[in-house]
Write a protein that binds this DNA or RNA. Structure first.
Lengths: 238, 238
DNA sequence: AAACTAAACTTGTATATACATGATATGTCT
DNA sequence: AGACATATCATGTATATACAAGTTTAGTTT
């Protein structure tokens, strides 16, 4: 929270969310923001670029920074957000149940994909997520034990990312994800309330730290009728 | 293609794709790139930031720009890319069939969501996509006629985005998308080879121009066994 | 040999300036 | 009043400089 442009960006996001600006309005000009935050134009522009990347504003040359409507879809799930953070945002009643937490030595294909040593230990963590009384998400995690040494049942029930970022001081940086639809497994049937569904939506992610080491592989299996993925995408000019 | 930092970015992407750098390598330092492209460091940094946003590199302080493995998943579908562009990238044999192309006056809910006048005309366009002999995607588009006046069957069969960007000179800028799973409709059954599937993956998008006007609503319905969404996501520090 | 220090790299942030380009308001001229 | 030119304000691009902070290497000391 010390970088000036990040602070300014957060400040502006807060203002927008609190309704100080509504969709279609333009933010104060870069020049005015310079005066307001007592900083240079480049710093303001870095902050505004953050807002633009996250879909809060659209910069229009000659006009200004137009505030976008952000609730056309109900809630933003895009990006790289932990389940705990999502649940907090949504304000729904959520219960996490830990079904398995152990160190495994097999799972060679995961170990290869994570690019970690052959003899490295991996945490295997299986959790179900219950929302409004229904178990609708099954999360299967594999986590490098040499990087994240101590995972307790309590940590797994609360927020894993908080532990990693705040307590261990590691910087979670990016992820590669894949979304597909697959047939349900016996494990899904056992741990989820499937309500007769024969397929689940599967999100597979590899998550990386800032130094480009992969530390986690996650398979998140969702009951299709409760699955929603929301995304804001900018067109990349080739 | 005239902006210096976009040109440099494209050049570097080409180099990476052609294998001049492989995963784990570091690019030449910013200082070296300055010399190589005969430009300032800020310009190089803008180019590198584009690469980082698109998942080509990860910048590590003190070390350099590390090239990321990009084919962990087979092909990148993320972002805002037209079907034609996707098909070209994949090199698959693709056939587009136009089932309906007409101007409609109803569809009030679409008109409201697009934020266009009540009396505005809308194109309604229904196309199926055949890949390897199977009709697996059904695209239903609503497009503002006042912005995109002339759509022919030929344009719809080829690339709509090419027409909009290159011939009309409009700048497609961003989109809001939603991905959900829904039960098949009679229309799906009629126009797709469903192979007994009872549900489809539905991607709904609102697409915007650079001046923040929404010009298109698209509903893309995919047979679940042929659907794959690949994403690269960066963690946003609150 | 081991441990520490310092120098020489790397990227990150903040500032300043100049000019280009699109949009808008304000004129003035016809 | 309408048309046209112009000044003004907005963002976009490119450049330069200074310093902060993380990583690696080389060197020195112990």
């Amino acid at each position: 929270m010390k970088n000036k442009y990040v602070v300014i960006s957060n400040e502006l996001v807060k203002n927008i969310q609190q309704g100080a600006f509504s969709a279609g309005d333009t933010l104060p000009s870069e020049h005015e923001l310079c005066a307001q935050f007592e900083t240079s134009r480049e710093t303001i522009r870095k902050a505004l670029n953050l807002l633009a990347q996250n879909g809060y504003i659209q910069k229009v040359r000659g006009k200004g920074s137009v505030v976008l409507e952000r609730n056309k879809f109900k809630f933003p799930v895009s990006g790289l957000t932990s389940f705990k953070e999502l649940a907090d945002q949504m304000g729904q009643e959520v219960k996490t149940r830990v079904h398995e937490l152990a160190i495994v030595k097999q799972a060679a294909h995961v170990r290869r994909q994570l690019g970690c040593p052959e003899d490295a230990k991996l945490w295997k963590l299986i959790r179900s997520r219950e929302i409004d009384g229904e178990r609708i998400i099954l999360d299967k995690d594999y986590i490098r034990e040499d990087l994240i040494p101590d995972i307790t049942k309590e940590t797994a029930e609360q927020s894993l990312y908080y532990y990693i970022e705040e307590e261990l001081g590691l910087e979670i940086s990016f992820a590669k994800k894949e979304i597909v639809v697959e047939d349900v497994t016996d494990e899904d049937r056992e741990l989820l309330d499937l309500k007769g569904h024969q397929q689940v939506v599967v999100i597979r992610s590899y998550v990386y730290l800032a130094d480009t080491t992969a530390f986690q592989f996650t398979e998140s299996r969702h009951r299709p009728d409760k699955f929603q993925f929301v995304d804001f995408a900018r067109r990349t000019k080739a």
